[in-house]
Amino acid sequence: MEEQNYIEGIFRALKTLLVGLKTSIKVFFEKDVTEQYPENRSTLTFSEQNRFCLEMPHNEKNEHKCIACGLCQMACPNDSITVTSEMITTEDGKKKRQLVKYEYNVGQCMFCNLCVRACPHDAIRFNQDFELGVFNKAKLIMQLNHPGSKVEEKTVAPKPVAQVTAPKPVTSAPGQTDKKEE
């Protein structure tokens, strides 16, 4: 730094100063990034990577994809998922496990996404609902399966199931949901 020519230094300084001024005036005319939260509630959007609250998507016939295997419950490091299931016998005499209650405690969840990764059937995913504040701790425990819902039968509607399960690698669940959202 000491070695540089005096005159050269002046011109280099001027050049770098002008570069700085150019950059800041560009930012000046850019669109502001501030989100005015309560007002823009209806138009507020988040990056797809945001994970706020676990949900179990149901189709229009009130069917979900959970087979009550309990892998998510085992994967959860915080014990925030409790899967209650029962054994039933189907018409053709097979024994089958059926979901009774899928309880999820947001208060304990650390949004690590391990449950979604563990799920072999893509039955659960994280959604973009971020307004989770409640006045009662008990309200933090949510039941994710809707009342009266059933597991989606693969034989009944083969086509949509095939479509949904088409992207094979279950382990890359977040990336997969990204693609689906697009």
């Binding site: 930012v27 000046f28 850019e30 669109k31 502001d32 990034v33």
Partner: peptide, 10 residues
């Protein structure tokens, strides 16, 4: 205001 606009704020 100008300071805010230079920092992409409102």
């Amino acid at each position: 205001k100008i300071c805010a606009f230079f920092q992409c704020r409102l």
